[in-house]
């Protein structure tokens, strides 16, 4: 046994070092977030509860019932029932999302050609019954009013969800390394 090893064994150096580190951390500011009281802001592309956007002119749902969102959905949890109206227009009779089966991939938002379906930033929903998570068209429109509508300055058509042709070309001000700050 070398001298160093002897000192280490007897004086528990590695344990003392570890303890010193925990002691130092003990006096540093805590990183814990006091969740229900203190909420973290959601990121711009956050995928929360669904909503159906209202047309700002008519106040009706923008959705035209093309069915793309239902086709792209990996968990097949969007149900759309359309019918012909008397003046031969396609109307969306029912638009339903089974939120409990949704995996929040956001593909429906990406697929929708009318930007009619959106994901809000609301994530605190829990209930005692499954029915509460079966979102009908009315509930989805209500979600929009509640979580997206009132803030008029917030675009529901978020660029984040709808990459434009800029992203296929070379945008002028792309993020690059700016040197060590």
């Amino acid at each position: 046994m070398t001298f160093n090893r002897f000192v280490k064994t007897v004086f528990l150096t590695e344990i003392v070092k570890g303890m010193a580190l925990t002691l130092k951390t003990f006096f540093s500011p805590p990183v814990t977030r006091q969740y229900p009281k203190e909420k973290r802001p959601a990121a711009p592309g956050f995928r929360g509860l669904h909503a159906l956007a209202r047309d700002f002119q008519t106040g009706e749902a923008r959705c035209v019932g093309c069915g793309l969102c239902a086709a792209v959905c990996p968990s097949k949890c969007i149900y759309i029932y359309t019918a012909d109206s008397l003046d031969h227009k396609k109307i969306v009779e029912r638009y339903e999302i089974e939120v409990l089966r949704c995996v929040f991939c956001g593909l429906c938002v990406e697929a929708c050609p009318y930007s009619a379906v959106a994901l809000t930033e609301h994530y605190e929903y829990s209930d005692y019954s499954r029915d509460a998570f079966y979102m009908t068209k009315e509930k989805l429109l209500a979600n929009y009013d509640k979580y997206m509508g009132p803030e008029k300055d917030r675009e529901y058509y978020r660029k984040f969800w709808h990459p434009t042709s800029d992203d296929f070309g070379t945008p002028a001000n792309q993020a690059v390394f700016r040197g060590k700050q």
Binding site: D167, A175, V176, K180
Partner: peptide, 13 residues
């Protein structure tokens, strides 16, 4: 899907 933002790059660095 989308490009990275400058904020992301800076924070990651």
């Amino acid at each position: 899907r989308n490009d990275v933002s400058q904020e992301f790059i800076d924070s990651l660095y």
